[in-house]
Design a protein around this nucleic acid. Structure first.
Length: 569
RNA sequence: CGGGGUGUAGCGCAGCCCGGUUAGCGCGCCUGCUUUGGGAGCAGGAGGUCCCGAGUUCAAAUCUCGGCACCCCGACCA
């Protein structure tokens, strides 16, 4: 491609909206333009990268026997009613109506469609297992789109769905997919790791997330040298230290004027936050539920939602606390006989002489002992794990890092097949629901993650396997016939060798070309200018380390082919 | 959904508080000449519903009200 003909609208200045490197660089390098909140046009450079990533994904999936298909982006309400998700998916599901006033959803994912397909067209255990995938545009009406394509509303995703006779077969495919994902992200040049994940709204049992390591990542991962790694949301909590078992003292009410928060109460009474019981009131599908945790910890609402099987989970309002509980927000506590369910953190099981709200304005109780003074429904794991906590596997201290979720794999089980009555006939002639797995990769997010991991002050440094072009040929002397004809010839020759090449033939300042080249980030730059040409020399630069090497100009083709070979892995 | 902010040429912004010329500046774009190893120079030029609507006024980018869009922060408070 000649640069003079290419649609690569680079920008010298950064548009105000860009917050993180990948977003900023995609806009500046002429890859991306915004149409509306969370809606983007992928310009030719980005489209080439997307195609490269898709190609890698297709190769690796086809290689393990997956088959590609394509499902509609607009899906009728009925199928979402069948799975029960029409009512529980929430506002992220973009709903629309056609001219006949029939309701539809813009597909945020395709479990319903694929399960229905299996229901009608996969009839016998002899056809199993089978693994079908598509690369499709998804739509999720994100509460707050941000960071460019990282959290866009419309995005490209590869989603695969597998069907099995039993969970042994499912587990087998799950492991195969795990390995395929490893190879895919490896080939994309990402630094990543797979971690145990929350199964979320999609339902199911086992799940791993593939996280690309990046400071700007939206997820926190806790990991341990023993190999355990989980998203902070999903990390199990191991026993916390320092709850002293001592002599039980009598319950005592103390005046705590206007002291609501743990911080305030701990300062006012001069006690450790660990000695405070934080009572958190949730409204879960119109039921008030109390949760007790230690004052120095935070609650993990993913765990809460999973525990309660909540569809809608919110904090209880002050009115609800006053009305239904006959208490006061800021002074809620667990003491006494309550009509509601009370779940307490496991670590509070033997807690004694704690401080807790007295259900009365400006009063707390001292010397609360959960066993004696409260009727706790159950002791559970509801605390948010954090860096420095003990690893639930080996007990060593865990570290944390931030990551971008680029892929996730789930074992769904029969959740959807049961709900939608998708069955096959097994070898005994019985009708059985499919065991299912589902597997996603954010294609456009993978592109952004690759940039987050590979850039410098000047621009992007594409890993060669997903770079929009492999080589950029820069002609600095477009007015010299000798140099132009040399470059034209070199361009042709490289193309004949199947090298993907962008040829900067523009009649402009060298500085502009250098800067555009660094910004766009094509891994191999070939620079042809008077200075070296006079000496029969040519220069190339590798963008990843910015090292320039001058060599004999007639040997460049061989050298470039060698470099491409080397960096293709 | 709550809080904050922004909307003026393709991009980045000034002007608005304190109403009053032909609405500016930098970059980009077009033409010509010069320049060609890190965003060059000179000369000329095009490009604006000042987000939309209503109001106040002799007069509105500027003041008032309503709306829309976009951005940021929060949504872990007991």
């Amino acid at each position: 491609m000649r640069f003079s003909k290419a649609f690569i609208p680079t920008l010298k200045e950064t548009p105000a909206e860009a917050e993180i490197p990948s977003h900023r660089l995609m806009i500046r390098s002429g890859m991306l333009r915004k149409l509306g909140s969370g809606l983007y046009t992928y310009l030719p450079l980005a489209q080439r990268v997307i195609h490269k990533i898709e190609k890698i994904v297709r190769e690796e999936l086809d290689n393990i026997g997956c088959q590609e298909l394509l499902m509609p982006i607009i899906q009728p309400e009925e199928i979402w009613q069948l799975s029960g998700r029409w009512d529980i998916y929430g506002p992220e599901l973009m709903r629309l109506e056609d001219r006949h006033e029939r309701m539809f959803a813009l597909g945020p994912t395709h479990e319903e469609v694929i399960t229905l397909l299996a229901k009608y067209d996969i009839k016998s255990y002899r056809e199993l297992p089978i693994n079908l995938y598509q690369i499709q545009t998804k739509f999720r009406d994100e509460i707050r789109p941000r960071f460019g394509v990282m959290r866009a509303r419309e995005f490209t995703m590869k989603d695969a769905y597998s069907f099995h006779t039993d969970n042994v077969s499912l587990e087998e495919t799950y492991q195969k997919m795990y390995k395929a994902y490893d190879r895919i992200f490896e080939r994309c040049g990402l630094e990543f790791s797979a971690v145990e994940a929350d199964v979320g709204a999609i339902g199911g049992s086992d799940s791993h997330e593939f996280m690309a390591l990046a400071e700007t990542g939206e997820s926190e991962v806790l990991n341990c040298e023993c190999g355990y790694a989980a998203t902070a949301e999903n990390c199990k909590i191991s026993p916390l230290e320092n709850i002293k078992v001592e002599k039980e003292l009598p319950l005592e009410k103390v005046h705590t004027p206007d002291k609501k928060s743990v911080e305030e109460v701990s300062n006012f009474l001069d006690i450790d936050k660990k000695q405070i019981i934080k009572t958190i009131m949730y409204n879960s599908d119109n039921e008030l539920v109390a949760f007790l945790i230690r004052g120095d910890r935070e609650i993990n609402d993913v765990k809460v939602a999973n525990l309660l099987n909540s569809i809608n989970l919110e904090f209880a309002s002050d009115d609800e606390i006053a009305g239904e509980l006959d208490s006061v927000a800021g002074f809620v506590g667990p003491v006494g006989n309550k009509s509601i369910r009370i779940f307490a953190d496991k670590n509070l099981k033997d807690a004694m002489n704690m401080v807790a709200g007295a259900d009365e304005k400006d009063y707390h109780y001292k010397n609360v002992s959960l066993g004696r003074d409260c009727n706790v429904t159950e002791f559970v794991d509801i605390v948010q794990a954090k860096k420095g906590d003990k690893c639930p596997k080996c007990g060593k201290r865990m570290n944390s890092y931030r990551g971008i979720e680029v892929g996730q794999i789930f074992q769904l089980g029969d959740k959807y097949s049961k709900a939608m009555e998708a069955t096959f006939t097994d070898s005994d002639g019985k009708e059985v629901p499919f065991e299912m797995g589902c597997y996603g990769i954010g294609i456009t997010r993978t592109m952004a993650a690759a940039i987050e991991q590979n850039y410098d002050d000047y621009g992007i440094k594409w890993p060669l396997p997903i770079a929009p072009y492999q080589v950029e040929l820069i002609n600095l002397s477009t007015r010299s016939d000798a140099i132009v004809s040399f470059c034209d010839k070199l361009y042709k020759e490289l193309k004949q060798n199947n090298v993907e090449i962008l040829y900067d033939d523009r009649d402009i300042q060298p500085g502009v070309k250098f800067n555009d080249a660094d910004l766009i980030g094509i891994p191999i730059q070939i620079v042809v200018g008077q200075r070296n040409f006079k000496k029969e020399k040519i220069e190339y630069k590798l963008r990843h380390d910015n090292k320039k090497i001058t060599m004999d100009k007639d040997k460049i083709v061989v050298k470039v082919l060698e470099l491409i070979e080397k960096f293709s892995q």
